[in-house]
Simulated scan of single mutants.
Amino acid sequence: MRFDPKRIVKAVNKLHHETVARWHQVEPDNAYSEFLGTVCQQHQYNFLLWHEEDIARSPEVTDARIAMVKRAIDGYNQQRNDWIERIDEAFLELLSEASVKPAANARLNTETPGASIDRLSIMSLRIFHLEEQLERTDVDAAHIERVQQRLARCRVQQGDLSQSLAEHLFDLGAGRKILKVYRQMKMYNDATLNPYLYQAGKKQAA
């Protein structure tokens, strides 16, 4: 994919929309390649994370199941953040292929394109599940009205975020801004940094 901001944002939103619908019918897959393949993989972890979070909030789930879900959530969240970084790395490759070099006075954004795409991914999931609520027959009119109001706000936010991402990419393509990949450096899954993990390892070794 060449570095075309409008085309990229449109393709990302289309991918999010289509895969969320499909993955509710079949096992999550990744039929994309190159840049969109990276976006799809990151989106898949958000999809899996979303549904584990739903399970965790069910009052009927056993403590043992909750423990399993919590570990799954930690794993998916780690992968989600790792793949945000990979999206940003993919953007750096696209910029390099387009021979883009940031100007000497290029500025940074507080949020990277990968982080924006992560937010669009989550928004596509929220919109899908709100739309599901409109199909329920066991709720009253007040519930439907609340859902419609939330859905309208989500669609506005999705549009605003898409526009902001496109503007950011235009600035990157023009060299007005610079992209850096910031590592999340999560500590809780690192056996050398989480005290509960490395202390447990010492006890087992003793």
Rank of each mutant, 00 (worst) to 15 (best):
R2A: 10
F3L: 10
P5E: 07
P5A: 11
K6D: 13
I8E: 09
V9P: 02
A11W: 04
K14P: 01
L15K: 01
H17N: 11
E18F: 12
Q25A: 12
Q25Y: 00
Q25C: 05
V26Y: 10
V26A: 12
P28H: 11
D29L: 00
T38E: 01
V39H: 02
V39A: 02
Q42S: 12
Y45G: 01
Y45Q: 06
Y45I: 00
N46C: 11
F47C: 07
F47Q: 12
L48F: 05
H51V: 03
E52Y: 11
E53H: 08
E53G: 08
E53D: 09
I55Y: 02
R57Y: 02
R57S: 04
S58M: 05
P59C: 05
T62W: 02
R65T: 13
A67S: 13
K70M: 06
R71F: 00
I73C: 03
G75W: 07
Y76H: 14
Q78Y: 13
Q78S: 09
R80N: 10
R80H: 13
N81A: 06
D82E: 15
W83H: 13
E85W: 03
D88S: 04
D88V: 08
L94C: 07
S96V: 03
E97H: 12
S99C: 11
V100K: 00
P102Q: 04
P102K: 01
A106I: 08
R107T: 15
L108W: 00
T112G: 04
A115T: 09
R119T: 15
S121T: 07
I122E: 14
M123C: 03
S124H: 13
L125M: 13
I127V: 15
I127L: 02
F128Q: 07
H129I: 12
L130E: 06
Q133R: 14
L134W: 03
D138Q: 08
D138R: 14
V139D: 00
D140V: 12
A141S: 13
A142N: 11
I144K: 15
R146T: 06
L151Y: 02
A152S: 14
A152K: 10
R153P: 00
V156D: 01
G159V: 14
Q163G: 09
S164R: 12
L165V: 06
F170R: 05
G173I: 10
G173Q: 01
G175N: 01
R176S: 10
R176A: 13
K177H: 14
L179S: 03
V181H: 01
Y182E: 11
R183C: 02
D190K: 04
D190I: 04
D190T: 04
L193A: 12
P195F: 06
L197I: 09
Y198D: 06
A200I: 09
